[in-house]
């Protein structure tokens, strides 16, 4: 297992470097951040000095080389816009994003697994239709629309939940305050994931329910609950793990829109703001971290395969 992980990490290294090269090229192709500073009061002389200080006049490969050298020394640089250390900015925003993603993923799976199995076991019955109907609804409804709908109902009409943020600014904070702020963004992300995942799990369990070994198990007189929970569910976990692996990048990307609508202080809004202001160090750091998370997500998925299915061997 250790050897496998080491091998995967080694393979991940050139992939990561490739991603950062492409990111850097795309980013610099978009233009120079100082070009955005324009107006009657703007000092052109100061812009020229700033460009020199930031090395923006150097060839791109030199700028990239400098950035990668900084990264190798554990330094993500300074934000061009806020002049704050990028590592501090990332750290302070990563937590809220991971919290939002983690809770949404958890809630989604807490719903998906039992209801997906129920739907498969009760195929073509009223409960199944209800769950499949919900699944289609959840997949179809755009996240931004659901967000606005929830804000309209719970904030504007009922005045029960805050429309944005993570904590009440200047308030006492605490778990309840956090929970209030999380309800709507978590709901939006969970609904979207649940819709997709329900379909995967239902079809995976349906496929397994028809398998010979389950019929044999049932013929042996093992109870229906044990057959499903001990034999069917474990085998149905393989596609669930695949879905889990796929959800991580989707969540990372999808949360940008949700974070923006709900003003959630995570990486999403930070990234949007950095892209719009061409804040190179922040864009690159977010790109690198996203790539690392996706690569780790893939690795964890592969490891979980082996845990769930003894037939899978990691070499």
């Amino acid at each position: 297992m250790g050897k496998y992980i080491f091998k995967r990490l080694l393979i991940a290294l050139p992939v990561l470097i490739g991603i950062t090269v492409i990111d850097y090229l795309l980013m610099t192709a978009a233009g120079n951040p100082l070009d955005m500073i324009s107006g009657a009061r703007v000092s052109e002389a100061a812009k020229a000095v700033r460009a020199e200080q930031l090395g923006l006049n150097d060839p791109i490969f030199l700028q990239y080389g400098r950035w990668i050298w900084q990264i190798l020394h554990g330094n993500f640089g300074i934000s061009l816009k806020t002049r704050q250390p990028v590592s501090e900015m990332i750290l302070s925003h990563l937590g809220p994003t991971l919290l939002l993603m983690g809770v949404s993923l958890l809630i989604s799976f807490l719903f998906t697994i039992p209801f997906g199995v129920y739907s498969a076991v009760h195929q073509y019955q009223a409960g199944d239709y209800l769950i499949v109907g919900f699944s289609f609804f959840a997949m179809s409804i755009p996240g931004f629309f659901l967000s606005l709908l929830l804000i309209y109902i719970f904030t504007v009409r009922l005045q029960l939940l805050p429309s944005g943020g993570m904590m009440t600014l200047g308030g006492g904070g605490g778990f309840l305050d956090l929970a209030r702020h999380m309800v709507m963004p978590v709901l939006v992300l969970s609904v979207s994931m649940t819709g997709t995942n329900l379909r995967y799990i239902r079809s995976a369990v349906l496929e397994i329910l028809g398998a010979d070994y389950l019929r044999t198990a049932q013929a042996k007189g093992i109870g229906r609950f044990r057959v499903i929970s001990r034999h069917a569910l474990r085998n149905a976990l393989i596609p669930v793990i695949t879905v889990f692996g796929m959800e991580i990048p989707v969540l990372f990307g999808g949360s940008i829109i949700v974070e923006q609508i709900f003003n959630w202080p995570g990486l999403g809004l930070l990234t949007m703001s950095a892209i719009l202001s061409r804040d190179y160090p922040v864009i690159m750091a977010v790109g690198l971290i996203s790539a690392v998370i996706v690569l780790i997500g893939n690795l964890v998925t592969d490891l979980l395969y082996a845990l769930a299915d003894p037939q899978v061997t990691l070499t």
Binding site: I107, F154, L160, L161, F175, L176, D177, A179, R180, M182, V183, V186
Partner: peptide, 8 residues
């Protein structure tokens, strides 16, 4: 979770 949110 929802109850915490709403009644909180």
């Amino acid at each position: 979770v929802l109850t915490f949110g709403v009644f909180g």
